[in-house]
């Protein structure tokens, strides 16, 4: 038997109601454990003190006429420990009612503030999330010194019509394709080019765009590192789009032999939607997406 077991049996041990074997084990434990022996002595002292307390006899008057005897007035305050309970009930009730009303008013008045704070914190969290999402790592690939570095943040669309591009800089070869692809105002052209290494293709894209006449100072020309690849977001002249499409198709790996009219080719695809942004006359938003194939 250990101290814990003895402690569990201590009540029966004091009463002497343990079984013979358990009693022997408890005795054995007490021989080797001075702490439990001391505790047992303390318990016996307490039990002895309680059992030897004088018993209070029932007063004779109460014994004879328990209900008819008049007891002296008892001070109710002696029954209650709380000072609040000593206040007369009518004042206490009024105080409690006022307290409840104040609590309700406080709750009503503070609810919009709490709601506003909650919404503010939600908004802040959302903004933080977007900021974290937009943080990109610039790649120091500058084998070609004239290629702009990757942007650190996604470019915002600028409606500044001062584009560096001019119609005269476009070669005449693209005019036929421009006819085939109808270019309207406020359009977004999205070109997706699947490649194993977007970092290697990026300089070629930049170089091709530059050769097509896009100024190196054009915002977004460096591309942006985003999860899953590199994205170029540009505002360009609509007349450039057929040439860009043609160039990108050639840059796409394993795209030889495919026709430009098949937007669903293996590594190169494109589509056109209405842009949500108001763009200057003759301009279109172009998004070139160099993506790594899944898996």
């Amino acid at each position: 038997m250990n101290c814990f077991e003895w402690s569990n049996h201590s009540s029966d041990y004091l009463d002497g109601t343990l079984s013979k074997s358990t009693q022997d084990q408890a005795d054995e434990h007490l021989k080797v454990c001075p702490d439990c022996t001391e505790r047992l002595q303390h318990y016996r002292f307490i039990v002895s003190s309680i059992s030897h307390q004088a018993k209070s006899p029932l007063p004779a008057s109460l014994q004879k006429t328990p209900f008819t005897i008049l007891l002296p007035h008892i001070d109710r305050a002696t029954f209650h420990s709380s000072p609040l309970e000593r206040i007369p009930w009518y004042i206490r009730t009024i105080l409690e009612a006022i307290g409840i009303v104040l609590a309700v008013l406080l709750a009503i008045s503070s609810t919009p503030k709490i709601k506003a704070l909650y919404e503010k914190s939600l908004e802040k969290n959302l903004n933080d999330f977007h900021e974290n999402l937009n943080v990109t790592e610039p790649i120091a690939d500058l084998t070609h010194s004239n290629i702009p570095a990757l942007d650190e943040k996604l470019p915002t669309l600028s409606t500044d019509p001062a584009s560096p591009l001019g119609e005269s800089e476009i070669s005449g070869e693209g005019e036929e394709e421009e006819d085939k692809i109808h270019v309207a105002g406020s359009q977004l052209w999205r070109f997706t080019l699947k490649t194993v290494s977007p970092d290697e293709v990026r300089p070629q894209v930049v170089q091709s765009l530059t050769e097509l006449g896009v100024s190196p100072q054009t915002p977004g020309l460096g591309g942006t590192q985003v999860p899953g690849g590199i994205e170029f977001t540009l505002i360009l002249n609509q007349s450039l789009i057929p040439h860009i499409k043609h160039t990108l198709e050639h840059l796409a790996p394993h795209s030889e032999g495919k026709t430009a009219e098949s937007p669903g080719s293996e590594n190169f695809s494109w589509y056109r939607v209405k842009s949500k942004h108001k763009l200057p006359e003759g301009k279109s938003q172009v998004v070139i997406w160099l993506s790594q194939p899944h898996g």
Partner: peptide, 28 residues
């Protein structure tokens, strides 16, 4: 009940409440 358990009950009242007057009220 008073004859049989009066002393036991009153002693309990006295010990728990520790006040003779309260014990009498409680007993009653």
């Amino acid at each position: 009940f008073v004859r049989t358990y009066g002393d036991l009950l009153f002693d309990l009242c006295q010990e728990i409440l520790n006040n003779s007057l309260q014990a009498q009220f409680a007993f009653r």
